[in-house]
Design a protein around this nucleic acid. Structure first.
Length: 251
DNA sequence: TCCAATGTTTCGCC
DNA sequence: GGGCGAAACATTGG
């Protein structure tokens, strides 16, 4: 469910509730659900992996974590963390997610230009942030939500495979053109992910994630738990180049 | 049946 | 106090 493109799909699907009034709000979430009653949804937004349901004075922030799901006008067997009902038997149910209420306007809280799927995406700003963390592994940098909001572990693996960069390379060691490619593909692949997810063909298009053989050169795709967060990382040692910091790079 | 997994936050320890 | 790692959250498919 939860990488950025999946949240964009959720956002698009629940646009139908914009302008509708919340008639009931239930679920095991500890937020003050009464605060939502009889309020009209004014907008539905997303920032990376955050789904935002906006009212005039308050916003529901939903993060689906690893296993979160939702359903529209139908119910699952498990208890929803939050269930919103509208007129005409319409409903939106959220399962196993982190749900919070935000007082401030989202525009004040969120930097839209950091979201790889947002039209306000700013590649130059990303480059500047990356320049400030030369010792960070590229695999960790891609998962940094303040730089590449919306990028998750699948996108990470596929982007690095596409641009032929080894996940253990450090940001500061990348040639300028590779740094450019990293930033560009983080966004490009996210849109491909979005398209394929909508078609239901996402898994079919994976080239590295969960794979064992490299389609480019037939070499073994390795699986290792890498970086600060020790996330599952798939890579080909043959076609993905390990860039190392040299004195030339430093000076 | 069991384990790992598209993620993030919080807590405790050094 | 920073940094690190483990735990917590809870579901599902392989």
């Amino acid at each position: 469910m939860p990488e950025g493109p999946s949240i964009v799909i959720a956002k698009e699907r629940i646009q139908q509730f914009v302008g509708k009034k919340v008639l009931s709000a239930t679920g095991y979430s500890k937020i003050n659900k009464d605060q939502l009653l009889n309020k009209k949804i004014t907008a539905v937004k997303s920032w990376g992996k955050h789904l935002l349901i906006c009212f005039n004075d308050i916003t529901i922030r939903i993060h689906f974590l690893m296993f979160g799901t939702y359903s529209i006008n139908e119910r699952k067997d498990t208890n929803p963390v939050l269930s919103l009902r509208f007129a005409g038997d319409q409903e939106f149910n959220i399962y196993t997610a982190s749900v919070k209420l935000i007082d401030q306007p989202p525009d004040r809280l969120y930097d839209w230009s950091a979201d790889v799927l947002n039209e306000a995406w700013d590649a130059k700003a990303a480059r500047k942030k990356l320049k400030a963390i030369p010792d960070t592994l590229v695999a960790d940098a891609l998962l940094d939500q303040t730089i590449f909001s919306g990028v998750g572990n699948i996108i990470k693996n596929e982007v690095l495979y596409r641009i032929k960069v080894h996940p253990k390379s450090k940001i500061g060691a990348l040639p300028a053109a590779k740094l450019t490619a990293l930033i560009k593909e983080a966004r490009n692949y996210s849109f491909d992910f979005l398209k394929w997810k909508k078609e239901g063909t996402l898994q079919r298009h994976w080239l590295a994630h969960t794979k064992t053989i490299c389609k480019r050169d037939g070499a073994t795709i390795h699986k290792e738990y890498i970086g600060k967060t020790k996330r599952r990382t798939f890579f080909c040692n043959k076609c993905q180049v390990m860039y190392k910091i040299t004195k030339q790079t430093l000076f």
